[in-house]
Computed example of a mutant assay.
Amino acid sequence: MHRFLVVIEKANNNYSAYSPDLPGCVATGATREEAEKNMYEAIEMHIHGLLEDKLPIPESKSFAEYVAVAEKSNMEQTA
């Protein structure tokens, strides 16, 4: 089994998704759920194509993490 990080972003009228470890493998959808489903299918197709062409499946090296940054109050900003 292979695992790949998928990034889903809100666009103007839809959602887009990509995997940093699979260049060129992208998907879109009207909703986040649809973009996620379409990306899953795109990754399956991408991996299938790599196997057919006898190319290696890339190793997943990406990870994601949220970073919390505290807002400064208006008084701290003007001081």
Rank of each mutant, 00 (worst) to 15 (best):
M1Y: 04
M1G: 14
H2E: 11
H2W: 10
R3L: 08
F4C: 03
F4H: 06
F4E: 04
L5A: 09
L5N: 05
V7C: 10
V7P: 00
K10Y: 06
K10L: 12
K10D: 12
K10W: 05
A11K: 13
Y15L: 08
Y15V: 05
Y15H: 15
Y15S: 08
Y15E: 07
A17R: 05
A17G: 13
A17S: 14
Y18M: 02
Y18H: 12
S19C: 10
P20S: 02
P20C: 02
P20H: 03
P20G: 02
D21S: 08
P23G: 01
G24K: 03
C25W: 03
A27S: 15
T28M: 11
G29I: 02
A30C: 02
A30H: 12
T31D: 11
T31V: 06
R32F: 14
R32T: 01
E33Y: 05
E33M: 05
E34S: 08
E36C: 04
E36H: 11
K37W: 04
K37N: 14
N38I: 03
Y40W: 06
E41L: 14
A42R: 05
A42I: 02
I47Q: 06
I47R: 06
H48P: 00
G49V: 01
L50M: 14
E52M: 09
E52H: 00
E52V: 02
E52Y: 00
D53Q: 14
D53C: 01
K54M: 05
L55C: 00
I57S: 05
I57M: 03
I57N: 04
I57Y: 05
P58S: 05
P58C: 02
E59D: 06
S60Y: 01
S60H: 01
K61F: 00
F63I: 00
A64H: 10
A64D: 01
E65P: 00
Y66N: 07
A68M: 06
A68S: 13
A70K: 13
A70S: 11
A70R: 10
E71R: 10
K72Q: 11
S73N: 11
N74H: 04
E76I: 04
Q77T: 04
T78L: 14
T78D: 10
A79C: 07
